[in-house]
Design a protein around this nucleic acid. Structure first.
Lengths: 172, 172
DNA sequence: TTTTGTGCAAACTGTTTGCATTTCC
DNA sequence: GGAAATGCAAACAGTTTGCACAAAA
């Protein structure tokens, strides 16, 4: 790992979730399930576990999901996870974003376009929204005759913790 | 190829270059050479060919360089190109940026930070600079206690050509 | 003459696919 | 019953590395 874009999110959220979040997740799961159903896609136990795990995070990698599931005794092979995530992307629940070596999947079911502030020390990721970019987008697009469809803005830097410790923090 | 981030640059610049550009390149080559020399890195014929080819483009992939060199009878194996590009990155002449399946190398020897407007139809890439982002960067950074070091902004859309033709253009 | 680069082949990593089998609708 | 998902293994693409040899400083 010696490319400029290093660092990987170490986000392993607690395996237990608060009542409030559990409800929100329950709700979201139901939305995914019926949406897939409408597209004649099916609902298997594996798929449910993967979607459930995915919906708990803001962004996660395939290996992250794989580890999470295994840790909780809900084993699923990598290719099944890949396939499920592709389905989620195709149906507008996830968004794939390449970062460093692997693809990160953003949970966009409950939020609009957002961008990322990434600590190159520990891999900590802050998501933010800023309307300022909209103006820029349209200015640049019209100046070049483009019809815009998407964007990806990543800001890199050192978080407060990593700036103080000379050694990068290990975020959980 | 069915991920959101598709499309690859088809940029194969003319193999002959204008006198003006040739001079600029000659100049840049010399700067690279002496910079590497100062770091006790060496100057081989292969390296010269790779750097020469790289400096002619704004951004290119390893396979792009490989094809370019081969087309011009200056064969170089892939791993040599990879190693040379890493040297160029380490010494501030190139910048690696992952896009789609492969890594793109931006020629930053003669320009500052810039961003990309990318046509998802034909892979055409427009580079642009916009000071507006600076304000945004600092606002977001200070709000989150980050010390910024870099950024990457990609705007995706359809270029004028691809919007008219329903079929994507093949840019050269 | 020592250190760095080259080039071939083999390894490695993230991701996809073929295919027989199982499961959902 | 028929379409779709699973899970194993094998394939694949981009990239890196080990190593013997060649070449630059």
């Amino acid at each position: 790992m010696n490319r400029a874009t290093a660092a990987v999110v170490k986000s392993a959220l607690p395996d237990t979730i608060s009542g409030k979040r559990a409800l929100a997740t329950q709700d979201a799961i139901e939305r995914v399930r019926s949406s897939l159903g409408r597209s004649r896609l099916r609902w298997s136990p594996q798929r449910e576990q993967i979607v459930l795990a995915f919906l708990k995070q803001d962004h996660i990698t395939i290996r992250g999901l794989y580890g999470f599931l295994n840790r909780n005794g809900r084993r699923a092979p990598l290719n099944t996870i890949y396939r499920t995530m592709r389905v989620l992307c195709d149906n507008g629940f996830a968004q794939a974003r390449r970062f460093g070596e692997e693809t990160h999947y953003d949970n966009i079911s409950a939020k609009g376009d957002h961008d990322h502030l990434i600590c190159t020390g520990c891999g900590y990721i802050v998501e933010f929204e800023d309307p300022t970019i909209e103006g820029l987008r349209h200015a640049v697009a019209s100046a070049n005759g483009f019809h815009l469809t998407g964007r990806n803005l990543e800001l890199y830097g050192l978080c407060a913790v990593c700036r103080v410790d000379e050694h990068p923090a290990v975020r959980t």
